[in-house]
């Protein structure tokens, strides 16, 4: 993370901590889903997609099962278009179809207000009606604005609203894996 001099970031997780957290989530997903083959890991761009890919890899190592991954765009399902200065960039969603009788696990880097997760659920329902939808996040920083909770959390991190959490992943950001906290 290239921090500014006035506002240096506080490291919360390093590459090893992220690896351990994801391994734990992978084990929990295996435990809680008797029919692992029905699971779809649906990453939210950009970093959720990379986390979903890593989770699938970890699950393959442990359970010897290839589980399917996908991408779920939330930008076109947000409820604040036209109110933000910057228009969210839309990405193509890609999910294995049909979703009926499947468990879709939404995967994101940070769980905050819950609005992104809501938009993701909305997006998924336009593809079909999965048997179950679950939510996995690397970091849960609190401050929910909607009745939403994660099923799998890498790290619970109490924060102040004004603080910022940034996840950096090598493949996406070209920086070492890390989670940073920025105080306002």
């Amino acid at each position: 993370m290239k921090d500014t001099e006035q506002n240096p970031g506080v490291p919360i997780m390093d590459a090893e901590a992220i690896r351990r957290a994801l391994r734990r989530i992978a084990h929990e997903i295996i435990e809680q889903n008797a029919d692992l083959r029905s699971v779809v890991l649906a990453g939210i761009p950009l970093r959720g997609v990379e986390i979903a890919r890593r989770l699938a890899e970890l699950i393959r190592e442990v359970a010897k099962i290839d589980i399917e991954t996908g991408t779920i765009d939330v930008a076109m399902h947000r409820d604040d278009v036209g109110t933000r200065a910057e228009l969210p960039v839309v990405h193509a969603s890609k999910l294995p179809l049909p979703l009926e009788h499947r468990t879709v696990i939404i995967v994101d880097d940070v769980l905050f207000t819950g609005r992104t997760a809501r938009a993701a659920m909305d997006a998924i329902s336009s593809f079909g009606r999965p048997a179950r939808v679950q939510l996995a996040a690397l970091v849960d920083r609190g401050h929910r604005e909607l009745p939403i909770n994660a099923d799998y959390v890498g790290k619970n991190l109490p924060t102040a609203t004004r603080e910022q959490i940034q996840v950096r992943l090598q493949i996406v950001d070209n920086e070492p894996d890390a989670v940073w906290l920025f105080k306002e």
């Binding site: 765009d73 930008a75 076109m76 399902h77 947000r78 409820d79 278009v81 036209g82 960039v89 839309v90 990405h91 193509a92 969603s93 890609k94 909305d122 997006a123 329902s125 336009s126 593809f127 079909g128």
Partner: peptide, 23 residues
């Protein structure tokens, strides 16, 4: 590139997104 993302919407069961709801 934005059109690529929207083209995919046409293949969904529900071919509608709320992006411009209220406009």
């Amino acid at each position: 590139e934005t059109a690529d993302a929207f083209k995919q919407v046409g293949t969904r069961e529900i071919k509608k997104v709320p992006a411009l709801r209220g406009k």
